[in-house]
Design a protein around this nucleic acid. Structure first.
Lengths: 148, 148
DNA sequence: GCAATATTGTTGATATAGTCAACTAAATGG
DNA sequence: CCATTTAGTTGACTATATCAACAATATTGC
């Protein structure tokens, strides 16, 4: 199995998966983009996060996170509040609308994931996911000690 | 394992992988984008393809393929020739430069793939790739017969 | 044989995703 | 107390992707 094949398979799968996701969101009447939804889920998963924390966890540019947050705030799905200890910083929380949106998103994503996984045993999916996580970690090595 | 986890793992892996690819291309002095390189590889893999064939195989919009081809022609990596039978159509071939570029690309991609796969047995990578192909196929069902 | 329809590739327009740099206000460290 | 760092923002830009409309050409059906 060449490196070529693994890479090609990944590109193709993500392209197909993102299309399927967009289709499922559209079918569910959701108009947010994949990136907005991923961020909303990240906030829902860890309410009170700072923008920096969201950027770090998702490994996205904080400029992009800031812009995506604008969109989510405009939709009334999240809100910001001042950080209790650091006046440079804010904490981000989902609103009731945001939490309601998460439920709809999860349903739509289940549709897409079930299509994608059709005919595959849960043990294969579990292994696939574990391998994906491992490969991602391989690409983001833990920070080295100072004496590197 | 929730659908959430599979999807999230995929998003993260592709984001990390594309970054690693771009880094490897940069380190190798390659200035083409990931999309240009993927198209060049597709042409190299099947010289003489039409634009429509390239769009179909990659499942990209033909408008995007046309634009990417412009860039590759500008770099002298491919060339077009009139289709022998259909005057609407052209055939696309790699040039000698394009073929030389492929070798450099393969080297750079091996670097990225080896980082990504570090510590994983080849059998795991093979299984992962097979599962990725199956899931992609699940998302693009074969065209139905007319009596659907 | 001709008109209607379909196809190929292109261009226009637009949206989404992503990155780098520079900035201000605030925090930290020496 | 001052230099440096950090948090978040904005500007600018690139990459990726899609839809629609079009002209030229091919195909189909009568």
């Amino acid at each position: 199995m060449t490196s070529d094949t693994l890479g090609d398979a990944l590109h193709r799968l993500l392209h197909a998966y993102k299309r399927a996701l967009r289709q499922a969101y559209n079918d569910a009447g959701l108009t947010l983009t994949v990136s907005h939804i991923r961020l909303l889920k990240g906030i829902h998963h860890q309410p009170g996060s700072t923008i920096n924390a969201l950027a770090e966890r998702s490994r996205r540019d904080k400029a992009q996170i800031t812009r995506l947050l604008h969109g989510l705030i405009a939709e009334g799905l999240i809100e910001k509040s001042p950080h209790p200890e650091d006046r440079r910083s804010q904490q981000v929380h989902p609103t009731d609308s945001g939490r309601a949106m998460i439920a709809a998103v999860q349903q739509a994503e289940t549709v897409a994931a079930e299509r994608m996984s059709a005919g595959l045993p849960a043990s294969d999916i579990a292994l696939f996911t574990r391998l994906a996580v491992t490969m991602t970690d391989n690409l983001y090595p833990a920070p080295e000690s100072a004496d590197e």
